[in-house]
Amino acid sequence: MSITSTLLHTRWLVRAPIWLFRARLGFLFGGRMLLLEHTGRTTGRPRYVVLEAVEHPAPTRVVVASGFGIRSQWFQNLQADQRCRVSIRRLHQVPAIARTVTDEERAAIVARYRSHHPRAYAELSGVTEETVGLRIDEVPYVELTLR
């Protein structure tokens, strides 16, 4: 297991940025990271996850990838209720709607990401394959439309 894959399985480390976003310090991550607040599909309680913004196709839209595939709790929760809140840059808890992108859209997103971030693409591709057995172009991508 690579060090990156090991770190992704270290719960306290992965969840640490949540506290920075909740303290309104999300701007420290620029636009590369965001805090997604979603509703637990069985508990109905708020849940939080920090994700990489794969791309910003418009000022009110951002795309994220479910690096752990359809098993990701946040992804499953958004399938049950697409309403969520997003904190990114200096924006805090902005209401949003989630939509899983089509296969065609995903292929274009991955091509742009590979072109703009070749080193990150190479690293994430290996980690994703090692962790969930899927290539980065096979995991689901979600577009968040800020309201």
Rank of each mutant, 00 (worst) to 15 (best):
S2L: 09
S2W: 01
T4K: 14
H9R: 11
L13P: 02
L13S: 08
A16I: 12
P17D: 03
R22K: 15
R22P: 09
R22F: 05
A23K: 08
A23S: 13
A23Y: 02
L28V: 14
G30W: 00
L36T: 02
R41A: 05
T43N: 06
T43G: 07
T43K: 10
G44H: 10
G44S: 05
R45M: 15
Y48S: 04
Y48C: 04
V50L: 13
E52Q: 09
V54K: 10
A58R: 08
A58V: 01
P59E: 07
T60F: 06
V62I: 07
V63W: 00
V63Q: 03
V63K: 01
V64P: 01
A65K: 03
S66E: 05
S66P: 00
S66W: 06
S72H: 04
W74C: 06
Q76G: 11
L78V: 05
L78S: 00
D81T: 01
R83M: 05
R85T: 06
S87W: 07
I88T: 04
L91E: 12
V94H: 00
P95T: 02
P95V: 01
A96R: 03
I97V: 14
A98D: 02
T102D: 11
D103P: 12
A108I: 08
V110W: 05
R112V: 14
R112D: 15
R112S: 07
R114L: 09
H116L: 15
P118A: 07
R119E: 13
R119P: 04
R119I: 15
Y121A: 13
A122W: 15
E123C: 08
G126A: 10
E130T: 04
E130Q: 10
G133L: 05
I136R: 03
D137H: 07
E138W: 03
P140D: 06
Y141K: 05
E143K: 10
L144F: 01
L146W: 02
